[in-house]
Amino acid sequence: MELLQNLLTTFNFIVQGLWVTISVTAVALTVGLAIGLVMAVARVYGHPALQMAVSAYSVVVRAVPVIVIIFILFFVISRYVNLSPFWAGALALGFASGAYQTEIFRGALQAVQPGQMIAARAIGMSRLQAIQSIVLPQALRLALPAWGNEATLVLKDSTLVFAVGVPEILRRAQQVSARTFEPFLAFGVALLLYLALTLITTQALQWLERRYRLQV
């Protein structure tokens, strides 16, 4: 009975971090998606100088631990722009995810058969139209499995935003553990919450994959 009571109290406290974790992940994934799409198109179809700039972004950001990017964004950039810890953490995570998503979409764009672009141009589409209407829709479908994997990684990386003081699931578990000296209970609840989030995310993405699978 006492265990159940403890479990309930612990759960109620930690679950308040759920919304923070979901928001941080959603913002980061959206920002990363926007960055990744634009960068990947620039990387594959852009001017050579642009391609090089994108490569540099991708290489540098992927070489640096995400936590470092979070610190830089929070402590350096926010000297000039007033960013709350939430936005600094979420944007930094998105900035980092953008580099990985750039690579995912670059690979997908390059996997679309060249004939698709040629056929689109042959019916009078401009390059931009062909990319928008023909190549990107196919690339997005090809990218979906890898993107789903990235989504679960970003979900887990969202624990890092506590470094700048955003109280997400893991930090709340630490706080409970420090107060109650029952780490198994606290981190067990955190584990279950992450597991549930990951399962829901992967199920949703698998549904999308089935729905939009490319018939080849």
Binding site: F75, R79, V164, G165
Partner: peptide, 17 residues
């Protein structure tokens, strides 16, 4: 009051957060 990791406290103070 803002909660953050012990290691981030000094840096946050230095940066005026």
């Amino acid at each position: 009051i803002r909660d953050m990791p012990f290691d981030s406290l000094i840096a946050s103070l230095q940066e005026g957060k």
